[in-house]
Design a protein around this nucleic acid. Structure first.
Length: 355
DNA sequence: AAGCCGTGGTG
DNA sequence: TCACCAAGGCT
């Protein structure tokens, strides 16, 4: 079957390019080392792939180092406290990934003896591991000939075969094309090679077709359509929402925070108590009665599907127990780096004004 | 099964 | 400034 593949040489051309141009990434085994018999650690492959979901290599690097330094194995991660993992993930975004990361580590630890399963369907059933990540782990960690489909591969395939069908309708055809090119030999390196190609040369805006290892066979390059592919459905405009956040500090420096519910926006993360975020003017619903002072300035932040303008109010926090559902965090237990970015911006604006 | 879910870099 | 974009998964 592989012998009748229409373009048997293409994967080889790409692998030759990868052998010389593979990026040096902390979770990666270099092609020369891999061919010398070195094997990637599935834990590191899994952790990196989850972090890389919808996230750039540049943003992931430091997080990956901190996580692997603090939790070197999946068992160590499985034994971690929820709040510690959410705190380490703070700033990276898509916080459901962190919650599922812990669930997955605990499932691997409890149900699979601390070893990531080789079986593709077993991987797919784990929390936070979908079609892409299951294929990526199988290919990269186990060198299995899985078809790895992500945004890079979709773009590269759309250009290689000059496919103008808009996403997501084009997905089945793009996957079929990708499957035709996936080799039996070195599928793990091949998967990383296509993604490296998409991230460095076959980039979204201005692809560097002149130095592309696939410039000759690429149909979009020949047609001059590469920069406009893949076509995508237009996206909705983002509405503006407004809200109020309340920053209260006790004389000894302790702060009033909340642990957000596990589901929904910023689920499971620390944050300042506040009003709901709505398109109508922000309601005023302070966590306790006080003479709340409006802070000069405002916090602006853009989420996936709306812009947020946040007004900050401050008041002294009285002694005594925390209001219902809220959390008093002592000065020395509070780390701004535990906060998701919008909450960090609020803290920075407040502290900046205090100095 | 479309909508929800973060963030930082880029042009 | 602002829309677009990234090694997607869940519901």
């Amino acid at each position: 079957m592989r012998d009748t593949a229409p373009e048997p040489a293409l994967s080889t051309q790409l692998l030759e390019w990868y052998d010389h141009h593979a990026r040096d990434l902390p979770w990666r085994v270099a092609p020369a080392d891999r061919q010398a018999g070195m094997v990637p650690d599935p834990y590191r492959v899994w952790l990196s792939e989850v972090m890389l979901q919808q996230t750039t290599v540049a943003a992931v690097r430091d997080y990956f180092h901190r996580f692997t330094s603090r939790w070197p194995t999946v068992q160590a991660l499985a034994a971690a406290e929820d709040a510690d993992v959410m705190g380490e993930w703070a700033g990276l975004g898509y916080y459901a990934r962190a919650r599922n990361l812990l669930k997955c580590a605990r499932a691997v630890s409890a149900d699979h003896g601390g070893v990531f399963p080789l079986d593709h369907d077993a991987l797919l059933s784990l929390p936070g591991i979908g079609p892409y990540t299951a294929a990526a782990i199988s290919a990269i960690a186990f060198d299995a000939p899985e078809v790895v489909m992500d945004g890079n591969v979709e773009r590269v395939m759309a250009r290689m075969f000059d496919i103008h069908t808009p996403l997501p309708d084009a997905k089945p055809e793009l996957k079929a094309r990708a499957a035709e090119l996936t080799p039996q030999d070195r599928p793990g390196d091949y998967a990383q090679a296509v993604m490296d190609l998409g991230a460095t040369i076959c980039s979204p805006k201005s692809p560097a077709c002149g130095i592309c290892p696939w410039r000759d066979p690429c149909r979009a390059r020949a047609a001059g359509t590469a920069p406009e592919l893949p076509k995508k459905q237009p996206k909705k405009a983002k509405p503006v929402r407004r809200g109020v956040a309340y920053l209260a500090q006790r004389a000894d420096g302790a702060l009033l925070l909340e642990r957000r519910p596990d589901s929904g926006l910023l689920g499971g993360m620390l944050g300042w108590p506040g009003s709901p975020w709505a398109e109508s003017p922000a309601a005023d619903c302070p966590p306790f009665p006080a003479d709340w002072q409006v802070l000069p300035g405002e916090v602006r932040h853009t989420f996936t599907h709306f812009h947020l303008i946040l007004t900050l109010k401050t008041a002294p926090l009285p002694d005594g127990p925390a209001p219902e559902g809220l959390l008093i965090v002592k000065r020395h237990d509070f780390r701004p780096s535990d906060l998701p970015t919008v909450m960090r911006k609020a803290y920075d604006l407040w502290r900046g004004g205090a100095e």
